[in-house]
């Protein structure tokens, strides 16, 4: 007796399985132990790793902005101007330099950064927010020609 239709009852797994698993195992190639070789263990680690990567992509941007802010604050304190004063007055002067550019200028072009702080101080002088600020001497070396 030959059962020809019995073969049709066998469930065939799709051809994609090898490639899908290979895709996961490729992402896990640098993991430790069975996590890099065994699919059912690797899939868990890979999913966690991808979650970490997604979260990290957002955090990386925030950390970078924070670092720029710290660097600009440090450069400002050296030049005797507070950071919020610098940012507010540069914005008031329509100098739309990003935190990244300001931090880079502070490191690579320190004299330009000093000039920016002086511009901010001069702008602050033109409409001092408090009595205390009004009593401060105007910044040296700034020629506004009434443009601020």
């Amino acid at each position: 007796m030959v059962f020809l239709s019995f073969v049709n009852c066998m469930r065939v797994k799709g051809p994609d399985k090898f490639w899908k698993r290979r895709q996961i195992l490729k992402l896990a190639a640098h993991f430790y132990g069975r996590k890099r070789n065994c699919y059912s263990i690797a899939i868990r680690s890979v999913q966690k790793a991808l979650q970490h990567a997604a979260y990290g992509r957002k955090v990386k941007k925030l950390e970078r902005i924070n670092l720029w802010k710290e660097r600009i604050t440090a450069a400002c304190e050296e030049l005797n101007i507070p950071y919020p004063l610098l940012m507010e007055n540069l914005a008031r002067c329509d100098i739309a330099l990003s935190k990244k550019t300001l931090a880079d200028l502070a490191i690579w072009e320190p004299r330009t950064f000093k000039c920016l702080t002086q511009i901010a101080a001069a702008k602050n002088q033109s409409y001092p927010p408090t009595v205390k600020a009004a009593l401060q001497p105007p910044p040296e070396g700034v020629i506004t020609r009434g443009m601020l």
Partner: peptide, 8 residues
Amino acid sequence: GKHKPIYH
């Protein structure tokens, strides 16, 4: 080193 603009 937070007083330096090269801080990291």
